[in-house]
Design a protein around this nucleic acid. Structure first.
Lengths: 337, 337
DNA sequence: ACATCAAATGTAACCGGTTACATCTCTTCA
DNA sequence: TGAAGAGATGTAACCGGTTACATTTGATGT
């Protein structure tokens, strides 16, 4: 068994209360005794048992983070943002992936009880009903990139609609007219918003143009499949631009189209969404919409902290972060990198 | 305040002990009362306070993970491996980045006391002395990718030496003779091992060839800088192959060299180390050494779990994971993807 | 010299669970 | 019928901290 506060108290010849006070910088303790106690603490290498402490103080200095999956650049960026913001406030992170079904998600949420001061959740499987069923009622929570919260929980997400809208505008401005869209999984809220943006912009900015929507699932493979389908099309009927709902699909299509002998962007322009790091490195470099993922994490953590600070008083707001168009060579921009 | 076991006991008309027994599947409780209690638990949405529980049981079902930084594909992969292995065992993860100085690292370690059953640590700042100074003595720990443990702590790392050795062999076999090496930060153990592998292989396999070592720091920028330096060299004296100690530097060099008009691999072959996802997508696709990062995480977690299972009994072993050469176009391979 | 009072320190209750031990209930058998 | 014993349930101590309240100590004023 490790060293406890009692051991320290005994060794220093004082009461546990004094040790506690010395450690927490509490009032009314002589400088002499404080120094003496701290010396003993150091000598014995005592470190408080955080769990025990949080039992009485009821705060843990820890934030729980639930993400759908811990894979890929998106996740990595998100955690980076959250971690940076958390460390700035001296908070720790407890992360959990949710990639199982709803039951597993429920389990993960329960496991957080008593260990965290608040929860950051991003999950396609989670909706408001599920949350109110499984959440300890008094646990502050902020949702990310989801429509699930309704008005009940605060959420913060990226402006997928306007990002997609801006991309279509960019393509139209570049002279492209037969603009196809490679959609994400239909159940996914972000994918829906991006599709909605595409449709609205198209009917608004290129009134005559027809919609061409391909189904995809955000994977590189589905990009390759659509690339293949496009290659096999009659060149006259082929779209002159393909806008994929995320970068990975765009890259899959890019590789397939290039391999099939198409010149990009002369034969077909290509655009993605997310601006994952790879986007800059493929050739031609991929035009995309930059999603401020790390920022999203930072903001989410910050609103969570605010909510923890004043429980109940903050109404459930839905913040939106702007997404910025990044024009690169795949839609004809000359600038490299 | 949330619902406690007492509330449940009162509501169900039993003692707290019975509730506890019902929840933990303990022996000697009637099926009737168990069902009744569980029904009440469900109705009240009670969830046990894990911190309080761990106070008496002294286990937390949580593993602490300390990484130097939570940025980039490397750590994303590592966490993915750890998370998968952890969830298979019903363990939770508490992650913390260490990117500050030693003091911050010490703080992060102390914060884990009482919240985790064991620690997974990967850090350049950490050595054996530091650990024995700051670690609660009874906390199981496994180190990753570091020489720091000495014989005191078990560690698991990638075979950087032989990976680099194999790459040099590959280049020599490809006919390259003036093989330059772009090193990583000198304080970094992995970087040192890769450099050592380069040197040994070179003197062994190409006895006459001179060493050319450039300094780098694992960043894309340092790759660009060296790329620029190479471009400015007299073509006759220029190396015919550049082996960078990691992929990001190789990619930095690749972009700069291409932009400078060099043809790869005809004018210069290029190789990296790590096999991050981007490596496949650049053109020419980058020859590299695949580091089984996720595997490393899995193995590390598994040895930690083993150590937690039998404290003290396992001697501090140092496992090594093989690194596999992946030949792609940047060293002349014809295969795409 | 003694009463008064503030500051420093100690004692013990409490946070929310688990579990050893005590108690109660009910069956079984002499 | 009553004693013994097994099985179910309750009581209370404990895990390692924090903190309200009690107590001790020492300075101050008259």
């Amino acid at each position: 068994m490790a060293i406890t506060i009692k051991d320290v108290a005994q060794e220093a010849g004082v009461s546990v209360a004094s040790v506690s006070r010395a450690l927490n910088g509490h009032a009314s303790i002589t400088d002499d005794t404080r120094k003496h106690i701290l010396a003993v603490v150091k000598r014995m290498r005592y470190m408080p048992h955080v769990g025990a402490r949080s039992l009485t103080t009821s705060f843990t200095n820890t934030i729980g983070v639930l993400l759908p999956d811990l894979y890929g650049e998106f996740f990595s960026e998100m955690i980076r943002g959250i971690d940076g913001a958390a460390r700035r406030r001296g908070l720790h992170l407890m992360v959990s992936s949710l990639h199982g079904d709803a039951d597993e998600a429920a389990l993960a949420i329960r496991a957080m009880r008593g260990r965290v001061d608040g929860l950051l959740v991003m999950s396609p499987h989670v909706d408001a009903a599920f949350l109110s069923d499984n959440l300890p009622e008094d646990l502050p929570i902020v949702l990310m990139n989801t429509a699930a919260g309704g008005t009940q929980y605060p959420s913060i997400s990226v402006d997928n609609y306007n990002g997609a809208h801006a991309m279509v505008a960019h393509l139209v401005a570049g002279g492209y007219r037969r603009i196809a869209f490679l959609a994400g999984p239909s159940g996914n809220f972000e994918a829906q918003e991006r599709l909605r943006g595409y449709r609205a912009a198209l009917s608004e900015l290129a009134p005559g143009a027809a919609e061409h929507v391909y189904e995809g699932d955000f994977s590189e493979q589905s990009g390759q499949a659509v690339g293949q389908a496009l290659l096999e099309m009659d060149a006259g009927r082929r779209p002159d631009a393909l806008f994929a709902a995320n970068d990975m699909m765009a890259i899959g299509a890019l590789l397939t189209l290039k391999q099939g002998g198409l010149r990009l962007p002369q034969d077909m322009a290509l655009a993605g969404f997310d601006d994952i790091p790879i986007a800059r490195y493929v050739s031609p470099a991929l035009t995309t919409v930059r999603v401020p993922i790390a920022d999203l994490g930072v903001r989410a953590l910050e609103s969570l902290v605010a909510k923890i600070g004043q429980p109940g008083s903050v109404p459930a707001s839905a913040q939106t972060l702007g997404a910025e168009l990044v024009a690169r060579a795949s839609t004809g921009e000359s600038t490299p990198t």
